[in-house]
Design a protein around this nucleic acid. Structure first.
Lengths: 203, 203
DNA sequence: GTCTATACAATGATAGAC
DNA sequence: GTCTATCATTGTATAGAC
């Protein structure tokens, strides 16, 4: 699930290096905070090379987002092929997402920053799509659990939000405060949410 | 709980207008995406006025963050004066925070963007402090509930993270997808988390 | 496809008059 | 305290040679 070029072509190197470098820099300093000069310098190419492949800074930016959405799409499709009970499948969802992020850490960082942040002069782009894809996946997993009589039929929407908020939060923590992060936390939080906090609710 | 100047002084207007304008612009376009020229133009002052009051773009930025932290501090102190059971107090926490955000919407937007995003060329600043303050407040509320025998003694840390993730998520939704936002959702999610999702856990 | 060289607008910041 | 005028630097983007 690594970044690959769009189609099979001779493709030496420059384009790939530009993509990877730009992802790193956008993740680290934001869109507006990153200059074209920095990108090409660090990628070891000259300015016109960037404009040749991507037409503009915006073009490069959008090319990256296109890659990201395809990665997410493939990943969620894989998760929905899983079997098991709801909690297990949600944990699979989390682990796959977590693993996918690990493989393209800065790509996630870049998107995460832009998703909750201001469009730093970046071209208009609807970042809520990633969110929607996640909600849909959780929804499907949960509904399978309702059909199997495993979980309450409570408003599935609310559950999807509850689960996504936990996952998002843990990924966010892992991103901005890795020293406080704990790979086991998502599992514990999910179990906690499943069982309830209130006294007298022990399984 | 509105933004006010640091001390009592003659103070006509320019400084205040610069602060408010900068908050709006930083919220909308990020730190790097906002130029000094834009700020002073929209504030109706000339460039040197900004440099007179804040010394630099960074100085203005840091002055804003200082205001924000004081607002949060006062707000949480007020919340911790509340009484009642855990769920009620957590809802009070959410409502106060929500109200506080409503009063200074763009201030929150600006910080929220920088908290999860890249330092867009902005001066180094530890944005995790807001997070820590929230965790501490939730912790205190929850511990009061444990003492009163109201909630499980389960790892209070986990509960704090669970609750904060719900609150953060709802505030985030309200921020980036107001059309999908629902003022009642936080309450529903908190109740859901308290009671548990799993079947057989009905109160 | 990739380079050198450059155009040209916008940037953050300041000097010095009032 | 606030202005006009200006600075050096950096920004995105392109022409034209190879």
């Amino acid at each position: 699930m690594k970044i690959k070029k769009t189609a099979g072509s001779p493709e030496p190197n420059a384009r790939e290096r530009l993509l990877e470098t730009a992802i790193d820099l956008f993740a680290e300093k934001g869109y507006a905070g990153t200059s074209v000069r920095e990108i090409v310098e660090q990628a070891g190419v000259s300015k016109p090379v960037l404009y040749y492949y991507f037409k503009s800074k915006e073009g490069l930016f959008l090319a990256i987002l296109d890659i990201a959405e395809n990665l997410q799409k493939d990943l969620l499709a894989g998760v929905l092929n899983s079997t098991g009970n709801v909690l297990d499948r949600l944990l699979i969802l989390y682990r796959r997402v977590y693993a996918g992020i690990g493989e393209n850490r800065n790509l996630y960082k870049m998107i995460h920053g832009l998703r909750s942040g201001p469009p730093q002069g970046a071209p208009g782009y609807d970042f809520t799509r990633y969110h929607r894809h996640m909600i849909n996946a959780i929804h499907k997993i949960y509904e399978a659990g309702v059909d199997g009589g495993e979980v309450k039929k409570t408003a599935a929407d609310e559950v999807a939000y509850l689960v996504l908020s936990l996952i998002d939060f843990c990924l966010h923590m892992d991103q901005v405060q890795p020293q406080l992060s704990d790979p086991q936390r998502p599992e514990r939080l999910l179990r906690l949410a499943f069982q309830g906090i209130k006294k007298g609710m022990e399984n």
